[in-house]
Design a protein around this nucleic acid. Structure first.
Length: 684
RNA sequence: UGCGGGAUAGAGCAGUUGGUAGCUCGUCGGGCUCAUAACCCGAAGGUCAUUGGUUCGAGUCCAAUUCCCGCUACCA
């Protein structure tokens, strides 16, 4: 099974150029891919590691419309920002291309034409909503209207956020365009489809049988779920003016669907790299002795395991991915990461706040990569891992070794003579650990690989502690020379073995050691530094993170999320005027909560018993997200008592509790501010 | 609703084909002093989400349940 490949084609998910990318993206795809790429290069294998900005699609087009700018402005901004961030974090793409490039347009069009000319795409005409003012067809998400199920007046074309029901745009009552608030019209449109159903036998054999044992369970399971669920033809074109023109006559206003063009971006990126480096791109995409690996997050599994392989298979000239190590997601301080909600650490933000310390982030993220399940990043953990592991174990061992060498041997590598049994065990352990690192990386277990690499430094610390050269120096200098020689050789091994994880720090370490080896096998050798060779103490490899630094970050995170919440909070417009008589019809009283309990099988509902002064009645209220039942017994409330009763979850609700809501969505009772108001009092 | 993944010490995670529960950090105790109060040694701490089943024996297999995450096809 261990097939030897001549070359490796590695891809990392193309970041969508509508905004900056956060550390969750980094941990999901870019970091593991980078470790793999750097490792393979150290093994002197033939590798190309490609990525680039994904710059088409309705999201960017609409964002530009809303901001009153052009899509080009947006993609230029974020392409540059993300490219720079990746560079500064040491993500070693051989090329960071972009899908707006002419070469990509050409490549994607060729791909489409190849399939279309061979009759592998089907054409279909359907009726879709069209916004005449914006001159655009509307995706389901861009239509809103009244929900036929619950009457909510701002349900979207795909789903009502209020009652959760899945909808189609046709079901919406009084549909409106989110772009212009105009009423959309039905218009017929033609699109091209990739008949995925025809590739089901191929996918079944290739994935379900061929990769049953080597793909990750989460990836395999997801694929199986899709295939077993039945595949349908999938549109590969869209009505939009932002994107790659459909290369067919009379296809005005139609572009390739972004998910058709994006993965082809891997190919065009490789083409550009090949041009720049005098290589043949086909070797990396069309030669069976090349290994193609896609690094992605779990949201991307279906596109990289089902759709893109089906496209490649349909085309026929291409190899298929050998593996798709999809990662789960990384949470942040107890909540999902989200750029739009401001609950995120963007790559450029980290780089700004921790200048020249990309390796610290790499280290912590690597140690909590969401390889088998979702994981969580906290600033406190970042501090602890940096200080207690990276600094205390790795940094400290190097520092001890360098300082002792400086002190005892004038910074010259001393000669090793007469290895003891213990010395030999240590030297063998180095080789064994490095081998384990290899195996872990080749199996995409990057977290485990780095944990092993840390053991290499632990080995060094223990070796020094066991042999106590600072004592022996008084009695047996010859023995100390051997001990320090071995310690220094171990530092050289560290500088190779850690390079995939911490490229900046290992470079610094190599400078200190005056060692310029890069080949992986050198990590197992014990004579990388020649006797008499001079080393230079250029300072500590890593610095500790202070409490104040992380406190600042936590505050900053909270402040950012809050600022965005305020900025995006829309103050509801005033409703049409009502007469005093209209208002007088409402009978609102002050009541007290007597009993409260959760309504089973619901997230938000509480069943309340209210004393209204007139009677005691049952009210079902959607406040469980904000209040614990046991905390609100005795709470005074305002209650609308003459509301028509309504049955909710089988319970008749006789009235409505008046609530208001803050930015965070937390509900609050509207009740008298004084405690001397009697139950049953009217609110006027 | 359906499907996929997850639930193991205070925290973060491993646990191969079922055979006396491991690792790192944290905590506690000790040692050492070359080192960024770092390092080394040792200890405490888990009814492996719940319930039932298969088995001589289950974290590991089966069934049901609960909770978390994702997907459910045009939201990139």
């Amino acid at each position: 099974m261990a097939q030897q490949f001549k070359r490796y084609t590695l891809t990392a998910a193309l970041p969508y150029a509508n905004g900056p990318k956060h550390i969750g993206h980094l941990a999901g795809a870019y970091l593991p891919a980078d470790v793999y790429a750097r490792y393979l290069r150290a093994q002197k294998r033939d590798v190309v590691f490609v990525c680039g900005s994904d710059e088409h699609g309705t999201a960017i087009a609409n964002q530009a419309m809303k901001e009153g700018t052009t899509p080009q402005t947006i993609i230029d901004k974020y392409h540059e920002l993300n490219k720079k961030s990746f560079e500064e974090l040491g993500i070693s793409f051989d090329i960071f291309h972009r899908t707006s490039s002419p070469l990509h347009h050409e490549t994607a069009q060729e791909f489409f034409t190849n399939l279309n000319d061979r009759g592998l795409l089907t054409e279909e005409v359907s009726e879709q909503y069209y916004d005449a003012k914006a001159e655009a067809f509307l995706a389901d998400r861009y239509i809103y209207g009244t929900c036929p199920n619950c009457g909510h007046d701002h349900a979207y074309g795909d789903q009502c956020e209020k009652c959760g029901k899945s909808l189609s745009p046709l079901e919406l009552i009084n549909p409106k365009s989110t772009l212009t608030n105009e009423k959309p019209v039905m218009r017929s449109t033609k699109h091209w489809y990739l008949p995925l159903d025809k590739y089901e036998p191929f996918l079944r054999e290739w994935i379900l049988e061929g990769h049953k044992n080597d793909w990750k369970t989460n990836v395999y399971g997801q694929c199986k779920s899709w295939i077993d669920g039945g595949l349908l033809p999938r549109a590969v074109t869209r009505d939009l003016d932002w994107g790659i023109k459909v290369p067919v006559k009379d296809a005005e206003g139609k572009v390739l669907y972004v998910w058709f063009d994006a993965p082809i971006g891997y190919i065009s990126a490789t083409k550009q790299w090949a041009i720049d480096n005098n290589k043949n791109w086909k070797d990396y995409w069309q030669s069976p002795d090349s290994k193609l690996v896609h690094f992605i997050g779990k949201d991307n599994i279906v596109f990289h395991c089902i759709i893109f392989p089906a496209m490649l298979h349909a085309h026929g000239d291409y190899i298929l991915p050998q593996d798709v190590p999809g990662n789960e997601f990384m949470n942040l301080e107890g909540d999902k990461m989200s750029t739009s909600r401001g609950w995120s650490i963007e790559m450029h933000e980290y780089l700004h706040d921790f200048p020249n310390q990309p390796d610290l982030l790499r280290f912590t993220l690597m140690s909590i990569l969401p390889e088998t399940k979702d994981s969580e990043f906290t600033w406190k953990d970042f501090q602890a891992k940096t200080n207690n592991e990276l600094v205390a174990i790795f940094g400290n061992f190097v520092n001890r070794t360098v300082v002792l060498t400086e002190k005892y041997f004038d910074s010259k590598v001393p000669e090793a003579t007469d290895y003891t049994k213990e010395d030999l065990i240590v030297l063998q352990s180095i080789e064994a650990i490095v081998t384990r690192i290899e195996q872990a990386i080749e199996g995409y277990r990057m977290r485990e690989a780095m944990a092993e690499a840390l053991n290499l430094a632990r080995l060094g610390n223990k070796y020094l502690a066991d042999n106590e050269p600072w004592k022996l120096i008084k009695t047996d200098e010859k023995r100390v020379k051997t001990i320090m020689n071995i310690s220094l050789q171990l530092c050289a091994s560290l500088s190779i073995a850690w390079e995939p994880f911490l490229p900046f720090s290992t470079l610094k370490l190599k400078k200190m050691l005056g060692f310029d080896g890069t080949a992986w096998h050198l990590a197992k050798q014990t004579n990388n530094l020649a006797t008499g060779h001079i080393i230079t103490n250029t300072g500590l490899l890593f610095n500790k993170i202070e409490d104040t630094q992380i406190e600042l970050q936590v505050q900053k995170l909270k402040a950012k999320a809050e600022a965005i919440a305020i900025a995006t909070k829309v103050i509801a417009p005033i409703k049409p005027n009502v007469t005093f008589d209209d208002f007088s019809k409402l009978d609102i009283r002050i009541g007290t909560i007597l009993e409260a309990e959760r309504v089973p099988k619901t997230d938000k509902l509480l069943k309340l018993k209210i004393d209204t002064g007139i009677d005691q009645r049952t009210v079902v209220s959607g406040i469980a997200g904000s209040y614990d039942p046991k905390d609100i017994i005795g709470q005074q409330v305002s209650i609308l008592v003459n509301l028509e009763p309504r049955t909710i979850k089988g319970i008749e609700s006789q009235g409505m509790i008046l609530m208001t809501e803050n930015i965070a969505g937390k509900l609050s009772f509207v009740a008298p501010t004084n405690t001397d108001v009697e139950i049953g009092a009217e609110v006027r």
